[in-house]
Structures are given as C-alpha cells and as structure tokens.
Simulated assay, not measured.
Amino acid sequence: MKKAIGLTGGIATGKSSVTSFLRSQGFVVFDADDLVHDLQKVGGRLYNLIFSEFGSDYFDEMGEMKRQKLAEEVFSNPEVNQRLGKLQNSIIREEILKEKNQLSLEHDLFFMDIPLLIEESYQIYFDEIWLISAQPKLQLDRLMKRNLLTEKTAKERIAMQMSMDEKVKYADVVIDNSGSLKNLHEQILKQIEKLKNDNQY
C-alpha cells in the first residue's frame, strides 16, 4: 500500500534533522521550502507576481529576491504576511500537489516537508501527519542562534505561528526533538518499523 507522510513542525524545532536522517535511510523527502525558492527565482511562477506587488526594494541589482529582507517584513508585519500569502499560496498548493502526484507514481512511501502544512490545510492530502516538536525554551534558543535574533524578536516570530498545542491536535505522530540525535533517530526508526509491521507500505 502506498503511503504519503506529511512532515511539519514549529519554527526551529529541527525538521531538517528529521529529513536528513530519513534521506540517510534511503527515503524520498520532498522539501516545500526548496520548491518555493525555485518558484521565486528569476523566471519562476512567483517572481513577477512578487515583484509587481512589493516593488524593487526587495530585489538586488541582479534581480534576485532579497529573501531575508522580505522574511523580516513578513514576520514583523501581519498585513504584509497576508498579502504575500494571498499572492502565492494557490500557486504553491498547485505545485506541491503536482509533486505529490508524481511521487505517488514512483514510490510506495515518501515524505513531504511542508512548514505550514496544518495552517494551510494540507493534512487532507496525507495518510499520516508527523509533527516535529521541541521544548519551548530549546526552540527559542535554536531560533535565536540560527537566525541571529534577539530574544524579543525570536519570541515574536514564534508567536506568529500556530501554537504547538494546537498543531498536536492534527498530528498522527509527534516526534520530540528536544533530546539527543540518537534519541531522535530512535523515534523515527520506531515509526518506520510500525509502518512495516502494519504492512502499510
């Protein structure tokens, strides 16, 4: 039986550690962020739309998008976040579902990492949702270190997202990424073994 697993989590909960391990075990993992970056590149489906909506201030002299500047504006201004979402979400959904359909033809089991999977109601397209979580203090520390943010700014970015307590309601599996890599890998392997034992792929 074919199985499509949706991966998601909060910002800085460590989804990349999960996807890296899954790939090391031979599994196919689609990354929605990579897709969006491609769509936003010069010539991509979203490039002209974003340029027309937000203007040249968010693009460098070579025409490349200033992702960091736009991201900062999105996180600090809900109105900008809403404008960007309205502009690109339907195209992103179309492209993600196109990728999912292709993967379904080629693989019995595959994973799709979609940061806003629950917020954008992608869960209806998957057989299982795996949620990557982390203790709040650890999540905050990781975000501050990774993005070089102040504690205040990091807290604001986390607060803009759906809470982990709310996301858990939609999850079939919760992977706690608060401990060691060994512990994380053991949790993932346990879920893979469960899929095998249930003859689900």
Rank of each mutant, 00 (worst) to 15 (best):
E79P: 00
S52T: 09
Y201F: 12
E73S: 13
D113Q: 02
P78I: 05
E193T: 14
N197A: 13
H185R: 12
E128I: 01
F59H: 09
M62E: 15
K66C: 06
L148A: 15
Q161L: 06
S20H: 11
I124D: 13
K100M: 15
V74R: 04
A154C: 11
N197S: 08
Y122P: 14
I124R: 15
E61N: 14
T13C: 12
I188P: 03
I50C: 00
K69P: 06
S24Y: 01
Y47W: 08
K137C: 04
S180C: 07
A154V: 03
K15D: 09
T153R: 04
D176M: 11
Q25P: 00
A71L: 04
L184H: 13
I5T: 10
G179W: 10
Q139L: 05
R142W: 11
E119V: 07
L84F: 06
R157L: 05
A32F: 00
A171I: 08
K194S: 05
A171F: 08
A159R: 09
Q102H: 10
I5P: 00
N101F: 11
F111T: 10
I132P: 05
V174W: 08
H37Q: 14
K190S: 09
K169P: 04
I5L: 12
D57W: 01
D31C: 09
A32C: 09
Y58A: 03
I91W: 06
V18E: 02
E53L: 13
I50L: 02
I118V: 13
I11R: 07
L35F: 12
L70P: 11
I50H: 00
Y122C: 07
A4D: 07
I158H: 01
H107D: 00
E120K: 01
I91V: 15
L46K: 02
I118F: 03
N183F: 12
G44I: 08
T8N: 08
Q40L: 12
A134W: 04
K190W: 08
K155H: 02
N101W: 05
N177V: 03
G6Y: 01
R83E: 09
I124E: 15
L97F: 08
D172S: 09
K190F: 13
S178Y: 03
G44T: 13
S133A: 13
V28G: 01
E64F: 06
E156Q: 14
E128N: 06
E151Q: 14
N147Y: 13
M164R: 14
F30R: 02
